[in-house]
Design a protein around this nucleic acid. Sequence first.
DNA 1: TCATTAAATGTCTCAACGACACTTTTAATA
DNA 2: TATTAAAAGTGTCGTTGAGACATTTAATGA
Lengths: 224, 224
Amino acid sequence: MITSPLLTIDNVLFTVHDGILKVLMVKRSIEPYSGLWSLPGGIVDPATDTSTEDTALRKLREKAGVKPNYLEQLEVFSGHDRDPRGFTVTIVYYALIGYQQAEVHIHTVDDAEWVSLPQIAQLNLAFDHKKIINVALERLRQKTLYSMVPVFCLPSLFTISDLKQVIETIIEKPIQRKSLMRRVEASGMFEEVDEKAATGKRMAQLYKLKDNFNIVNFERNLSF
Amino acid sequence: MITSPLLTIDNVLFTVHDGILKVLMVKRSIEPYSGLWSLPGGIVDPATDTSTEDTALRKLREKAGVKPNYLEQLEVFSGHDRDPRGFTVTIVYYALIGYQQAEVHIHTVDDAEWVSLPQIAQLNLAFDHKKIINVALERLRQKTLYSMVPVFCLPSLFTISDLKQVIETIIEKPIQRKSLMRRVEASGMFEEVDEKAATGKRMAQLYKLKDNFNIVNFERNLSF
DNA sequence: TCATTAAATGTCTCAACGACACTTTTAATA
DNA sequence: TATTAAAAGTGTCGTTGAGACATTTAATGA
């Protein structure tokens, strides 16, 4: 008889704040790796969860009180080396949220924190979480080149410049405002609002996501 | 204490034969769904497998004696409804192989068979395998638009026409020979062989994959 | 009033794909 | 041996959507 391996989920929740890409990390309070920073995740519980996506959302709620705007499966990581308890399997999700939406809750607890990527590079993380974050980052970057997923890092009202900055932060390259506006128009996802934002000098048009929008995939990547 | 759910893997192994896209199916001999066709998969065994990818390869070997040319994680399917035994989780891989490479072994057993997609649509499959196949197909089609993955359905030597036919079979749309040749050249994956194939009238140049090739992703999709 | 600055738009060029006509090759057949 | 048909492969043009860059618009403050 085969016993099922320990099955967990992990979330890589990204946000962008002030031109910095951040990942939500939680401090572990139990062994193994107690005291180290790790991704917010946990054990899949067949008694309460209707699916593993359900587990992912539950863990984000329990550990940081947040509900992401976007959640997608990344991939499964497994092996004997990733956990001292032996062979384990973790289903990893990556998710996006606006900084403002999550800020409050996270500041009330001291074991959850937004951590920038350079900081992560210097930390000693639990399990293979550093590797997982890098894979998630790569996927997010790739997806940013052919879709509008970065909007899920924005508040409900935003300007083209806000969107541009989030995209540039994620892919770490400048893009043409013109190219972005073409995509905003072509996607049909956005709606102009009767309001302008005084971000800089000339007031910028505010946009919101349409009520029933489809997330569009473009046929070309942004390139450089 | 939480008990881990039953964890399985399933493979959607595709091949193209004579202009028909086929999926490898195996007949179940145990409950549940005994006697029905299903995807070749099974239970992850921590005692023998070093990773879930390892499980996927092992199951393809055991059930059909094949070693795919390409294997990639699709996604995880989970829930209470997909298996009468309760909450289960299956990690699905999709894979590609040349028809010739697999033909022999599969013909020696009567519980493994290549099944075309129209046939699958009419069959009653075990679990949620019909849905899984459709998701895998969608992914394969998408990937075919921006990469050269279909080469993994070909034998070691092949012509441009062979490649063209495989691509057209997968995406169910005709493509321009010229566009394909541009991509073959741009990819740098291919090498002309000192040999020609007498497929039709004029003999066609044979190609092979370079010894150390990288699978290239193009920045645009093929379009119509 | 006018300079400044950022938002928004207009125009140019470039790269890659689709379309399609055209040339080349080779086996079958007259 | 010449002809022909079909598939392999090439040349070229139009389209599309990207980046680059200039221009116009609008708000602010000197």
